[in-house]
Nucleic acid binder design. Structure first.
Lengths: 230, 230
DNA sequence: TCAAAAGTGTTTGTGATACACCCATGG
DNA sequence: CCATGGGTGTATCACAAACACTTTTGA
């Protein structure tokens, strides 16, 4: 039976671990850190921290992301809580994981200079400490699910992007190949992109038109019952 | 920066709250309890408890469900963690929610005798304490998602059930009406049900054939790449 | 002039949806 | 004999998938 007071209940450490995704050169990437403290010093780990008494989990995740990237307003979602009794060999710790989406190209320039932090292609990611590999796996599962029913993929791209970039981003996350014409037709049918009078000349001689995601239009469509579905 | 030792970090109370779903007389139901301790004594609440030092979250949820229903092996899934600083007015508490699926008819007979515990039709559920209403909402969203891509609905039904019961269960969870023939055709195409030589005579003069879900066949199909999708 | 990426519509197939009548039986 | 729920098949539609050629231009 639950006691009439809470004070006899056990308290635990609550950690937040972030699975930070990026997209660059047609590859889905993940940001990990070499731990500079025990236990497991020198091994690769997700970026994390502990929940403070006066903040909620979202705030903690935002704080950790800000500390690492310098960015505010990063798109993130809670994924799952991990609680195996001996998951952290040092002390009983429960961890709540978040995934985050970052536009590598435009923001995190200084980031890579810091020594112990590194972007890996998801495919080449080294083994991580504790249950962090499982956290990554679960986060990818959620991310795959999410990008098919919510237009969050744009968080990984610069504000202006080409259709090819958009498609390659979906392909990288879903780990599949998509038909160029079907993909464009589908996206055009949503009527959520604004074609700009600008071209990206970096990847071809002809140049590729740049597009912007129209957030306002999306919100308006949502209210009218629109349902994003790739 | 994360410190070189954990011992200066804040510890918190970690609760587990269960959204217990049942299905009876064509209605989706939820089990709640009248709190017999402060704060919020006398108000309706989800069934919960605190995580102990030596158990993981799944074990805690199982323990809470066992205490309440006497049942082991209840189907459940973690939903989300709730961490607003003042969500519990008495003391900082983070809560991890689980949904659980119970076959009301065959099991929880003694349950209803206990005074402060009650099944409500989801539609008629009273307002709950703290952020428990939000927890219920999130759990339903997950449940709706889950029954469309995994055959978990059977957990709400007796071992033997009629096609009508199965359909009404889906209708109750999805809060929609389904076409009888399309529903049966779809389910038959999966080839996951075993038709028994028994009829349920309780709801009509003609009687309706009973079916069983074939778990082994489902597992075999899964390995062959089958994907359940309603 | 050629290599490399950009851009563009139509056909086909599959799965979702809509739909109506006969059957069996207890009262 | 009739009221009630049980059981069954087909036609249509909409969306997903497959598919190939022309354009542009820098090297």
């Amino acid at each position: 039976m639950v006691l009439n007071t809470y004070c006899k209940e056990d308290k635990v450490l609550l950690a937040v671990d972030c699975i930070i995704f990026g997209f660059y050169q047609e590859e889905l990437k993940i940001l990990v850190v070499k731990r500079d403290f025990e236990p497991a010093m020198g091994e690769w780990s997700l970026i994390g921290g502990f929940l403070k008494q006066k903040e909620n989990l979202n705030d903690a995740a935002s704080r950790i992301l800000k500390r690492l990237t310098g960015l505010n307003n990063i798109y993130m979602e809670q994924v799952h809580s991990y609680s195996k009794v001996d998951r952290d060999p040092k002390e009983r710790t429960i961890s709540v994981s978040y995934f985050a989406l970052i536009d590598i190209a435009h923001h995190c320039k200084d980031l890579l200079k810091e020594n112990p932090i590194k972007w890996f292609n998801l495919k080449d990611m080294p083994s991580l400490i504790f249950d962090h590999n499982k956290m990554v796996k679960d986060a990818i599962t959620l991310l795959r699910n999410r990008i098919t029913n919510k237009p969050v993929g744009f968080e990984l791209l610069p504000e202006k992007f080409t259709m090819r970039q958009l498609q390659k981003m979906y392909e990288a996350i879903l780990d599949t190949e998509l038909d160029k014409r079907n993909f464009i037709n589908k996206f055009n049918s949503f009527d959520l992109l604004r074609k700009l009078n600008e071209k990206d000349m970096s990847s071809s001689k002809k140049g590729a038109f740049l597009f912007k995601f129209d957030e306002d239009k999306y919100q308006k469509k949502l209210e009218e019952g629109f349902c994003f579905k790739i």
